[in-house]
């Protein structure tokens, strides 16, 4: 534990500035989401028709509404925090679903080989070649939109990356000494995969997750922007931009504030992911 912590500390010292800024931004977002209830900001659904379309601080707005108000006088910061919670949580859950699904399928394909392998590889190719947003739109058209279905669809995004990676790495690990030793000792296959192979490919899977996570945010916010993802009264960063779009003339901040937030969140995760990949490939 101590060794891990000192290694982590040494790693932060060598971090480029961009990675540090990205980490600070993500921590800020997470703490805003986590401590929203204790912050002195208005409730997100409180209407105040006397304070409609107020600009943010710095563009003529007051300290009452740091990021301004929308067309009904609701506080944008409060709505932003609630939307961040929805968008980040959805992307996180979806990435975990796709990682679990993809890794399982990849390991199964590598273990069984034969027609199982061919089936999984065929599915990987099919998934990789279809533009996923069109598939999502089609599923939404056929089955209607509900939060649960939306989460499942997002969870299906990107599983093929995890599958491809875990399949390749499982195949590669089979010839390794530790796996052969375990086999000789008579351990069961699932124990070898779960306790020994998986931890060995965990870092590569984590890097893949940092590619998948921002793309999932982009997919969710795009669909919510189009009005086909998260539906009111729930808010997501995407549908905030979608509603703000009607007020470009009178209240540009309504769409710029959530838009910039999406941009910074995806950027931060990508920057950290790029850095993590370069650190891992150096080892």
């Amino acid at each position: 534990m101590y060794a891990v912590m000192t290694a982590g500390w040494r790693a932060t010292k060598k971090m480029p500035l961009s990675v540090k800024i990205a980490l600070v931004w993500l921590l800020l977002c997470l703490s805003l989401v986590g401590f929203a209830a204790w912050l002195p900001i208005p409730e997100k659904n409180t209407l105040n028709l006397m304070a409609r379309l107020l600009p943010p601080v710095g563009w003529g707005g007051g300290l009452d509404h740091l990021l301004g108000t929308d067309e009904l006088g609701r506080d944008i910061l409060a709505r932003l925090i609630s939307s961040m919670r929805t968008s980040l949580l959805l992307a996180l859950c979806a990435t975990m679903i796709s990682a679990a699904l993809g890794t399982t399928l990849g390991i199964l394909a590598a273990h069984f080989g034969g027609w199982v392998d061919e089936l999984v590889v065929g599915a990987i190719d099919a998934q990789a070649s279809l533009p996923f947003i069109i598939v999502t739109l089609t599923i939404t058209a056929f089955f209607g939109s509900s939060l649960m279905l939306f989460l499942i669809i997002l969870g299906l995004y990107g599983w093929e990356r995890f599958a491809r990676l875990s399949r390749a790495m499982t195949l590669a690990s089979r010839g390794r000494g530790y796996v052969l030793a375990m086999q000789t000792l008579g351990f069961s296959w699932w124990r070898i995969y779960l306790r020994h192979v998986l931890p060995n490919i965990a870092s590569a899977l984590l890097v893949t997750a940092t590619i998948n996570f921002p793309e999932t945010i982009l997919l969710e916010t795009s669909l919510s922007f189009l009005g086909l993802g998260i539906q009111p009264p729930n808010t997501s960063l995407g549908n905030m931009v979608g509603f703000g779009r009607n007020y470009l003339l009178t209240g540009w901040w309504m769409c710029v504030v959530p838009g910039v937030t999406i941009f910074l969140c995806t950027l931060a995760v990508s920057v950290i992911g790029d850095w993590a990949r370069s650190v891992i490939s150096r080892h």
Partner: peptide
Amino acid sequence: STLGFAIPNFFFGLLLIL
């Protein structure tokens, strides 16, 4: 390139309109 990848299409479009 990283910036271009991270910005959502719809938001980039709206910024151009703005």
